[in-house]
Amino acid sequence: MSVPPMIQPPPAGPVPWDKTFAKKLLADMLRIRRMEEKCAELYGEQKIRGFLHLYIGEEACAVGALHALAPDDNIVATYREHGHALVRGVSMNAIMAEMFGKAAGCSRGRGGSMHLFDAATRFYGGNAIVGGGLPLAVGLALADKLQGRQAVTACFFGEGAMAEGAFHEAMNLAALWHLPVLFCCENNLYAMGTALARSEAQTDLCAKASSYSVPTMKADGMDVVAVHEAARIAAQHVREGLGPFFLELQTFRFRAHSMFDPELYRDKAEVEAWKTRGPLHTFSARLKAEGKLTEEEFLALDAKANAEVQAAVDFAEAAPWEPIEDLLNDVHTPRAAS
């Protein structure tokens, strides 16, 4: 059996997008960043409780990849999914209300930060079991294939999930059955506190994936242009019925794993070095250098993001608590009396 191709990402160069599209992606990265910075603050105020896993530093991955997908596509994400939900089209109000545990939240306050769901945008959730979403994505793609729907199921997961049996079982099933799954691995180098090289014998993730005869591609997950251009090629491959595709996005989270994490496992210098490659400032600097963005425009986008965040917090604060009498709702699907 021949080794499946390692597809080369498009060469770097000027941003290959018009100004409107470039600004849209920058705006989305800003929306995620400002929303999550506020979430961290609200966690300190105990407005948000439970686990809170911030995506700060990784925004280019969700923004670049999700803008390569269509409304009919399915999205399966992880417990670090605030950004994916937001970019996919779940309103910031509904996300914030969910974090507050209010019934106005996108999962009616039953899920919280790790379980954002939205049927309208085919967002099949945050999953708090590492690797748990991968078999689900295979099934969604199987349903599409058997029903003749031309959709892509994009499944996001971290490199930590690639040590789980679920990854291997899902890759094998998707490849064996030639299913339209786009596997998006957000490799942020640490599975909670365990570095890739301390947990995986094979640290070349594309090599692992290609052992299932799935084509692969690596992209710089700190560069929204690289992510988007790679994701477009990957999604196109899947959409054309050529089977699953594995995309590795090399990225880094700037914050702790969760709000409980004292970050004893990595050097501050390593974090600072990655911050110089931060997706927001590098992309905005690039757009400015290319004459596609002015400082005033950047400040306007940022102000707009901050205003959206404030409105979302106000909405979540004002939303009522669900009455305790509703506790047992949504365990089973209500059925009309026969």
Binding site: L134, P135, L140, A143, A170
Partner: peptide
């Protein structure tokens, strides 16, 4: 694990 999970996804998919 894989095919039971795929069953869940297929059920979600209609």
């Amino acid at each position: 694990l894989g095919f039971v999970g795929a069953g869940i996804g297929a059920a979600l998919g209609g």
